[in-house]
Simulated scan of single mutants.
Amino acid sequence: MTYVPDRITSKPGHTQDGYGGHELDVPTWPVEPDRYRLVAARACPWANRAIIVRGLLGLEDVLSMGLAGPTHDERSWTFDLDPGGVDPVLGYERLQQAYLARDPGWDKGITVPAIVDVPSGAVVTSDFPSITHDLFFEWRDHHRPDAPDLWPDDCREEMEAVMKRVFTDVNNGVYRCGFSGSQEAYDEAYDVLWSTMDWLEERLTDRRYLMGDRITEADVRLFTTLARFDAVYHNHFKCNRNKLTEMPALWGYARDLFQTPGFGDTIDFDQIKRHYYVVHEDINPTGIVPKGPDPSVWLTAHGRDRL
């Protein structure tokens, strides 16, 4: 596991699958029901992953969740969706307060998702790949009995390779397009993005999910980008070779997941658009939020069950 350098990270509480922490000298928090709070935001694709995995695994009763609003300033995500603008469990107005409780000198990014230790009010980790990984491996004693196997042993190596390409070229690729500082950088990111989108289109033509006939963590990671593609990335990030709706396999696949319990019910297109079009003032200085596209298209028949 590679940890993002500018995110607060920690060692897992225990290692049922031998998965270890990183090399930093940091505290170890044990896995305990009702001790931690997942702070997320429906607007954020990285946080959306954690929301989906928490629900698929049935961890709602052992890991509470707080949701930040879609817009924020440079200081951090805020709990403006809650009464009085205060998270009812943490008592915080800003996620920044949890970071400062862990490190009073923290001057880097304040990101979601984040796992917060409720007794101390301190952030435990904000490393988004490790959060969903740990929810599966470290919290497995608390999964619901029929929870899906999001990390199947028989295809783990291939899945890791697929997720790596999806992250580099698609999840992060749309951001590389949107925040390119030069035409050359944009052109390169654009070409890489669409090369992988075409690869995914071909891969999903004859298989229902990325790894075959079952939903895995790979599908969760791709879905949160696809859900935002036409509403945001196509226009706002200039990823406009074509729309997702114009790619038969990918569009059918995205709708199939959207209509699967635990996926589409985590998506709020209004919050997603408000986040990107309002917060990214350098890209959209007017702050105007587009009215479209029509979200009802996500509920149309996908025909993927034939696979």
Rank of each mutant, 00 (worst) to 15 (best):
P148V: 02
P148E: 07
D149S: 08
D149E: 15
D149P: 00
D149N: 13
L150Y: 04
L150I: 00
L150V: 01
L150T: 00
P152Q: 02
P152N: 06
P152H: 05
D153Q: 11
D153T: 09
D153Y: 09
D153P: 00
D153G: 02
D153S: 11
D153H: 14
D154I: 14
D154A: 14
D154G: 10
D154P: 09
D154V: 14
E157V: 10
E158M: 12
E158L: 14
E158Y: 09
A161T: 02
A161L: 13
V162A: 09
V162C: 02
K164D: 12
K164N: 12
R165I: 03
V166H: 06
F167N: 14
T168A: 14
T168R: 15
T168D: 15
T168F: 08
D169Y: 12
D169N: 12
D169G: 01
N171H: 15
N171A: 09
Y175D: 08
Y175C: 06
Y175W: 08
Y175G: 03
R176N: 10
R176A: 15
R176L: 13
C177D: 03
C177I: 03
C177G: 01
G178P: 05
F179D: 02
F179R: 05
S180V: 05
S180F: 04
S180D: 06
S180L: 03
G181R: 14
G181Q: 13
Q183A: 08
Q183Y: 07
Q183V: 04
E184L: 08
E184A: 14
E184W: 07
A185V: 11
A185I: 08
A185F: 07
A185K: 12
A185W: 09
Y186Q: 08
Y186G: 02
E188M: 03
A189G: 07
A189I: 05
Y190T: 00
Y190M: 02
D191C: 01
V192H: 12
V192P: 06
L193V: 02
L193P: 03
L193F: 06
S195F: 14
S195E: 15
T196E: 13
T196Q: 15
M197A: 13
M197G: 08
M197S: 08
W199R: 11
W199N: 06
W199E: 14
L200E: 01
E201P: 05
E202Q: 13
E202L: 10
E202W: 04
R203K: 14
R203G: 00
L204D: 06
L204K: 01
T205S: 09
T205D: 11
T205G: 13
T205K: 11
D206W: 06
D206T: 12
D206L: 10
R207Q: 15
R208F: 02
